[in-house]
Design a protein around this nucleic acid. Sequence first.
RNA 1: GCUCAGAUGGUGGAACUGGUAGACACGCAGGACUUAAAAUCCUGUGCCCUCAACAGGCGUGCGGGUUCGAUUCCCGCUCUGAGUACCA
Length: 937
Amino acid sequence: MDYQFKDIEERWQKFWASNKTFKTNTTSEKPKYYVLDMFPYPSGAGLHVGHPLGYIASDIFARYKRLKGFNVLHPMGYDSFGLPAEQYAIQTGQHPAITTESNINTYRKQLDRIGFSFDWDREVRTSDAGYYKWTQWIFMQLFNSWYNIDADKAEPISTLIEKFSTSGTLNVNAVSDDDTIDFQPSDWANYSETQKQEILLKYRLTYLKESTVNWCAALGTVLANDEVKDGFSERGGHPVEQKKMMQWSMRITAYADRLLQGLDTVDWPDPVKEMQKNWIGKSVGASVRFKLNENDALSSELSSQQIEVFTTRIDTIYGVSFLVLAPEHELVSKITTPAQKADVENYIEQTKKKSELDRMADTKSTSGAFTGSYAINPLNGELVPIWIADYVLAGYGTGAVMGVPSGDQRDWLFATKFNLPIQQISDAQVDLNIQADPTKEGKYINSGIINGMDYSAAVATLNQWIEENNVGKAKVNFRMRDAIFGRQRYWGEPIPVYFNDGLPYLIDEEELPLLLPEVDKYLPTETGEPPLARAKDWSYSANKYSYELSTMPGWAGSSWYWFRYMDADNNQAFASKEAIDYWKNVDLYIGGSEHATGHLLYSRFWNKFLKDLGYTQEEEPFKKLINQGMIQGRSNFVYRVADANGKPTNTYVSHGLKAQYNCTAIHVDVNMVVNDQLNIQQFRNWREEFKTAEFILEDGKYICGVEVEKMSKSKYNVVNPDDLIERYGADTLRMYEMFLGPLEQSKPWNTNGIEGVFKFLRKFWKLFHDNEFNFVVSNHEPTKAELKALHKIIKKVQDDIERFSFNTSVSSFMIAVNELTDLKCNKRAILKDLVVILSPYAPHICEELWVLLGEEAGKLSYAQFPMFNPEYLVEDSFSYPVSINGKMRLNLNLSLNLDAKEVESIVLADENVQKYLEGAIPKKVIFVKGRIINIVI
RNA sequence: GCUCAGAUGGUGGAACUGGUAGACACGCAGGACUUAAAAUCCUGUGCCCUCAACAGGCGUGCGGGUUCGAUUCCCGCUCUGAGUACCA
């Protein structure tokens, strides 16, 4: 019997499932290793060939680690709350839970066919009540915590209340959205319950606040910053506008510095670290207050107002020649003089008209308007005009900047356009008539107290001065905002909060989970309330209080799920202490880079928070991260010829000849195309309209055009893994996905080469079988050549897997099996090791051969990865080409002492060369891996 | 604009710390087996000159440099992809 992959794979998948071969125990003498995949959202379309790429890689690594003697945790689950199921529910009325369940079943079937070694007993689903009970529980912990800056960690809110009642705000150094709070312990005692709760809400790590949010009308919900791309929603591409709303937020900004510092401790791809760094956007500088100058047009009350600016270049403050406010800045209307009123209002009007996109596209032109007012530079008392311009953003820093044309190119352009002075403040030789000098070189001139200083001295001096004179202070600013947490949607975790007197309170912990109620429709109510408002008899404490109606965002459930896998069925805790102490954190995490500023950042935040409260041990959740590349679709086209009148005919011209015709490209299903050659019969049967299709061929073939696009149904370029498994088997699919190229690289899918991998597996199978397909192995001692072939592959595969270069190890397998086939090697000792080495890649065929070799079924996964012995790889002949002075390449017979790394004598094979070298003394002999490569004379 | 990644045959890609560039696979061409096809096996395959062989020349986006030796290191440029965007 030939290699019967279907039979083999079905049999072993059944065996693994019923014997729970990959069940992992938490207590083990072995060292632990945690291999995690980013769990999928179970969409209705099922898996295409790109999805399992990362899963195959992680499965290979998990299996390899088991062979290396580790206790490996390798689980899988579903991120099953989310928008598509809800959108589908709105259209069809079907409960999202039903859609989700059926999608999960499809996913599971598809995953099972690939032969992963997941421990399915640990499966999690974020939409299960048993799971989201703990998502809600973590929310409650966040609500009940504040961030103590002195301790640099989160603490229970009770310690804050303690401080308030003993010493008021005096000893409180906390992250809060209001740094003006100031009271005595006696005040605290006299505050009403409502007042107390209002104050505490400003410190809680999850809090309710009126804030500007990204509102997506089409989706009927708010979105987080990372869910908005260029002014449109990431899912669906609907327009997003800014809107003020009462919203739940997560105080992730409290962790900004730790999130930044932690990046230095993890083994992650640089681009992802870079993205997170930019997203957090730390900038060190100073905040300075400019007093307004008294002015006839302004009331004296206003002249006591100040404009606060944030700058990273306090050292250039003597060069300030104007201030700029964002058009939305609250002071704009107050400080605009009557003479300038029309100008300013006109400018604000223009700014409003510009859409978000226009504003981003138009970064070149400089625009602005003068308010007519002046501020006073606190350092030199000079008057500086106050302008407004849309290059200053209301949402960043203080919404106001100081303009220094000599030190900042944008300020320089602004000054040049509006004829504002450009003051030189550095002795660096730069012509300020041409451009600004943003460098920090040179000594300061025309700069009062910092004249003659260099950059760092100037910054230190000025920071001290502004603090002493109470006009500002050194400050660190972050670009990152707190994360909006509420969503006006149905299919998400209910927020475990009820309202009393307009203030939020947590429900009793005993009442978790707060179940998602049933509703008649999944749309907002007529009055614009979220869908949960439709729930009947859904309120807290015997109808006394109403529940929070928004639900949690998609990222809530995925921000802690790796802990749940450690102890998936626990009903008393999100995971037991023993399980967390043993598994600690994820050693290897594989997933797409699209989660760089979303999931990966939120997960690190929650991980740090849970650590602060003492529930977990590790500061970082994912030690090593690998981003698998995206698999793109490779679309094929046929070219329909139009007749003289431009009317389409039913004739199609091959790609190479299309220039001679007037034709249009039509997507054709890639599954009817092999090596870009169209299967004409299949095409005719594809659709009724093609039944009578005629073809203009080249060399008797119809060649299709090719384009790389996103893989999608509408482009007919989706390749389904099930079809390939049907034809070639799961082992071939697994190996081929790895063979395709480096894991991290994005690439278009191309099925063309899969035959090569399939042929390899057949060849491998045949090594163990004679021509009549009988299983035959010999018990003879292996020869040196056979051992060499074996140990070469042991070393190669081990090195390749350790550095996640799976594509090259597949190639090495092919070489090894070719060598052993040439040697007609069917020796048990060699083949047994070969099966072990190959099993992470092609587990089914290896399991089959393992048993045929007389070993116990199911034990292959825990066999020992063979030890590499370098002795087998030593060269025994020293006749090979060597170059002289890196130039000519000659065959030499050498006699040398390898230990001494010196040539004892050189015997030249060629007389001519001997002549050439006569009398020359080798200056240097270059060895590489014990071989002479080059002789320098 | 900024940041990062990349550019190697007809194609996907190898070459791990500089050391015989093009492994391995696809495709293509030729051959064996077959009535035939499929499957399988064998041979060839970077480009140029050459009937062919020997030999030679050119070759890792482009231009320089370091080195006995550069796909690999350095400088400058071109192009492609990704991220980000007036962040003060």
